[in-house]
Design a protein around this nucleic acid. Structure first.
Lengths: 251, 251
DNA sequence: TAGATTGTTAATCGATTAACAATC
DNA sequence: TAGATTGTTAATCGATTAACAATC
């Protein structure tokens, strides 16, 4: 059985051009949307849908048809004028572009509430990512078996990092520690050889050139929502701006 | 004791111009960075730092000095040429702009792994957000007491939503359900009157005009990292592109 | 052929950057 | 006054959008 990467068996005959995805240098904004397209396409595929137009797919993905077509055109000409896109083929091309043809190993550092929830969540395994390590520095938690019933995992020491990377088991590092430990953990991840980091800690990370850091920050998201929430309140009571609020209330 | 919003006691004498923040219509990209500036400023304030230059603050926030100054200038002229920014005053102005002068109530729907981790996390309360409800539709979990030791919370039925919004206790809705329940929960949140939603479910939400939805998606973040990870692998083995990989390996 | 839909172009919009005049 | 640093301007860059020629 040859690896999936090598076989283009799922590509229909109208596959255009090179196997190597054409465009090169895909805009970051496009890359950030590809996972959505991929998920919706996978879902359509499971529903037995064979073809979609850019209009239909765009609606399902919550983007404009123009944006969708522009994005997809970055990957190549995978649609058929007058017909639309072959669901299965397009899903395949996007998964190839995203690097989903192979499973990536994820090591989570920090086995607190968040780390535990992440490994128990199932969100990793379901999309082709495998949790290859759950590490913590606290002696009390090391050795505990956490994770889900299907994917139990024993908490290891942070010192296990190097071996995981060395053996090509870990490819992506996830920081799920408190903020004050984040930079130190980040430095260890980079020192171990990782170049892809997902940071859940509310901290700004310093990384050398070439390291890709994505950040997920609950407080930031809530504060952005608070901003809009306040805007709405302001609009409904335009007179009650902070300068005059005191007088307005206590007049 | 008058409400904090009404008193500008913390503003130093050099406060320029109106109490109402000047610029209006702050660019979304700027709004998204304000929480970072605010957090770093708060941290500086706690360290007893009185003044920062845009260069120092920018470095701490991981942005360029030009971008920082541009962002801050959207709020007003809160700096002093030749000196820098008064840490306390700037933190105050940003918190006012972000709507952090008042506590916002957050209702979390979905008391599974993720929902539990969120309410136990402490990330809410620490930044002026209060979890006013943890709701679920599953009879087994309703009534359970979850959350942290400091902030225990009983799981309630989803039907409790309307009262929470009606009583002005809930302002932001968080969706922590599986993907297939997300749209339904979203519809209920909107119907109950919420206009600010944070979605952790891997689903595209349809919302009416005027509703602000922020999305946090673990799988999306990981797939973006996978894309970069694959790019790096491609660069190191340029010959082993998918088209020729089979032959290359099995030659 | 007629109808449908893609892929691409050109225009617009917004965000970033660099440079510097204003000014503390 | 001299040195430092902001706030703003203008240039650049990237992303979005609308429109349509290409083509199935």
């Amino acid at each position: 059985m040859s690896p999936v990467r090598a076989s283009h068996t799922s590509a229909p005959a109208h596959a255009s051009g090179s196997g190597r995805s054409s465009g090169r240098d895909i805009p970051p904004a496009t890359v950030a949307r590809l996972p959505i397209y991929h998920r919706v396409l996978t879902s359509l595929e499971e529903s037995g849908v064979l073809t979609v137009s850019s209009d239909e797919l765009a609606t399902s993905c919550g983007v404009s048809p123009a944006k969708l077509r522009k994005d997809l055109s970055q990957l190549g000409s995978y649609g058929t004028r007058g017909v639309g896109y072959d669901v299965r083929f397009l899903a395949y091309q996007i998964s190839r572009e995203l690097g989903l043809m192979q499973p990536w190993g994820v090591v989570v550092v920090g086995a607190g509430n968040l780390g535990q929830a992440l490994v128990a969540y199932g969100g990793f395994a379901s999309r082709g990512f495998q949790v290859v390590g759950l590490l913590d520095s606290h002696p009390d938690v090391i050795g505990q078996v956490l994770g889900s019933r299907e994917h139990p995992i024993e908490v290891g020491p942070v010192s296990a990092l190097d071996a995981l990377v060395e053996d090509d088991r870990a490819h992506i590092g996830v920081i799920a520690t408190p903020a004050d430990a984040a930079q130190d953990v980040c430095d260890r991840l980079v020192a171990a050889g990782l170049r892809s980091i997902l940071n859940f800690a509310p901290a700004v990370l310093n990384v050398p050139e070439g390291v890709e850091v994505r950040k997920v920050d609950l407080a930031v998201e809530l504060q952005i929502l608070a901003f809009h929430e306040q805007r709405r309140a302001d609009e409904q009571h335009p007179a009650l701006d902070p300068t005059s609020l005191g007088e307005a209330i206590y007049a």
